[in-house]
Amino acid sequence: MKENFSGRSRFVNYLVPLCLFAASWPVGRTGGALYALGALILAGLSFFLFRHLVHQINQAEQRSCELDEQLIQSQKLAAIGELSSGIAHEINNPLAIIGQEVEWLRHLFETSTLQEEKDRGEFSDSLKQISSQVDRCRDITHKLLNFARKMDPVMQAVELNRLIDDMAALVEKEAKLNNINIIREFQKDLPLVTSDPPFLRQVILNLLNNATYAIEANGTITISTKDNKDGRVEIAVADTGRGIPKEHLKKIFDPFFTTKPPGKGTGLGLSICHGIIQRVGGTISVISQLDRGTTFTIRLPIAP
């Protein structure tokens, strides 16, 4: 559908000035050079006019493409959320049995005196390993359920600048230790936003934490707010960190996507943020350049 539309507009782009030019040609021959010149200017003008129009159409198309992508992304996330919470539920039950059997084995083992010293050491080491891996799985499934649970937001008036400033202050001390500066570029007289304050705090804190992680040391985080004048306000968190490779950018909001080493971080942080922002009626997007940094942009409706 979209392909057809843009193909047609490109065709129109060239056809119309050509026709105008052709129409002006015989006039120029019979009615003098002036007419021809006028027609030529007209044709040229219309050519530029159409080019401009087509450019606008293409831009609008790109925007709608982005919107489509966002829609697909959120539908995908909803589906994954549903699926993963189902799986987490199913896994919790066998996990509970494994955990209990380990505890039972440990109980039997502690009350027995049969095995040799060396075997005992290995046996108890294995048991410890099984139970710590069960703990690890449990951590994942419980976090996943936290992520998927449908908590309805409670909408109340939020002073956005102040809320962000509070969270920045919380991150600032640890950031300073690594020589990371936090710059606040808040628009004054930002309108009060109706949203869920603790949810927003969670998202801002998460983004600031990710930004410090991306910078590691020596860099700047710029956090800004502005009124978009379209019923929405915009929050941007920009870091001067290592940036995100293009192939990762599309997956960044997917649950379990992480670049951290195994065992650190579950890869749920950003998908939780995405879920939250969606539930309060906003959008979150990301742009990034390798070795330059990353910017997360949140757009929130002023009234729900």
Binding site: A169, L170, E174, R201, L205, L208, N209, I272
Partner: peptide, 20 residues
Amino acid sequence: HASVESGMQGMQLGAFDYVM
């Protein structure tokens, strides 16, 4: 003590706010 880690934990566990 401003700790980002515990701040994130607190907010995720459903605290209303985290104040220094």
